[in-house]
Amino acid sequence: MKHHVTVGVDGSPESRAAARWGAREAVLREVPLRLVHAVDWLISPSVPAPGREAADRWADEVLTEAEEDVRRRHPGLEVSTRCLSGRPAAALAAEAADAGLLVLGSRGVGCLVGFLIGSVSLSTLVATETPVVLVRESDAPEAAQPTRYGQIVLGVDIHEAADKVLAFAFEEADRRGCALRAIHGWKMPSMYQYAPFFDPENEREIGRTITVMLDEMLMPWRHKFPSVCVTHEAFEGPAPEQLVRAAASADLIVVGRRLRRSPLGVHLGSVAHAVLHHAAAPVAVIAHG
């Protein structure tokens, strides 16, 4: 069983936000927190010794700062640190293998609300099957110990069996004692674009059918987590747009990504990609088969 929460830190404001979020999550789960830093260059005999020493000092400072911050906020939390060597994305993905959750920071896009997914974060995200949460630095004042958690928004694809995604969302809502809002976006079949006569009732009937399918998909999880208050909505329109809009008032947004590779490399689905770039709330990306 995987017991700890791992956070990648690099000294940036975004990584500090990730460390604080990860610490709160570790407290909720009643598990240790592990802070890790990956040296962002290849250490080889060709690198002068002063350069390696500077990298080591920087790593120590980054880890010490993050550790002191989370210990000050959560005195009873078990915290450990680890410095990794090698390419950051590969090192972080390997470190995440025995973790229950990996938390990373993401940069905001200028004055726009959103995520700028750097190459390290994206490469790490698609290289691990461990759930990953990306946290954006917030301009709002942060309480050390929030007394109440907001709702969790879950993006659901009724055409895929994604039990890992559903399990993560329900478990998070259960441990937070907060509501869960499940959202599915759909569009009319393309053949209706060429129909000479379009009956609006067909559209309404499709919407009702999809809503029933969504409800049936959630039903076993409602029985498993009876204390979680669940609402569900099926919207006609792009799923990312609805999820991003819902995330404005959410504590966490949960989306899935399929475990698949193409000849050009790893693949991140369009919904997860769009949500990661534009959602204001932390985003949990859950890999599933």
Rank of each mutant, 00 (worst) to 15 (best):
I43A: 09
I43M: 10
I43C: 01
I43L: 13
P45E: 13
P45V: 06
P45D: 14
S46D: 15
S46M: 12
S46T: 15
S46N: 08
S46H: 12
S46K: 05
V47N: 00
V47T: 02
V47R: 01
P48N: 04
A49P: 00
A49D: 13
G51L: 13
R52I: 10
R52G: 01
E53G: 10
E53S: 15
A54F: 03
A54C: 08
A54V: 09
A54G: 12
A54I: 08
A55H: 01
D56M: 04
D56W: 00
R57T: 15
R57A: 15
W58E: 14
W58M: 09
A59D: 01
E61F: 09
E61V: 11
E61W: 12
V62M: 03
T64K: 04
E65T: 15
E65K: 12
E67H: 12
E67Q: 15
E68M: 09
E68D: 13
D69H: 13
D69R: 15
V70Y: 04
R71S: 02
R72C: 09
R72L: 14
H74N: 11
H74Y: 12
H74D: 03
H74P: 04
P75G: 10
P75M: 14
P75Q: 13
P75C: 13
G76T: 11
L77A: 10
L77I: 11
L77W: 07
E78C: 01
E78P: 00
V79Y: 05
S80V: 13
S80R: 11
T81Q: 05
T81G: 03
T81F: 03
R82K: 14
R82F: 02
R82H: 13
C83L: 12
L84S: 02
S85P: 00
S85Q: 10
G86L: 04
G86K: 01
R87G: 05
P88W: 07
A89M: 10
A89Y: 08
A89F: 08
A90H: 10
A90W: 06
A90G: 08
A90T: 11
A91C: 05
A91N: 01
L92P: 07
L92F: 06
L92D: 06
L92I: 14
L92A: 07
A93I: 05
A93K: 05
A93D: 03
A94T: 10
A94P: 00
E95T: 07
E95F: 05
A96S: 14
A96E: 05
A97Y: 06
A97T: 14
D98P: 01
A99K: 07
G100E: 05
G100I: 00
G100V: 03
L101K: 04
V103T: 08
V103D: 02
V103N: 06
L104I: 08
L104T: 05
L104D: 03
G105E: 00
G105Y: 00
S106K: 12
R107W: 11
R107V: 14
V109A: 13
V109T: 15
V109P: 00
G110V: 08
G110S: 08
C111D: 07
C111F: 09
L112D: 03
L112G: 02
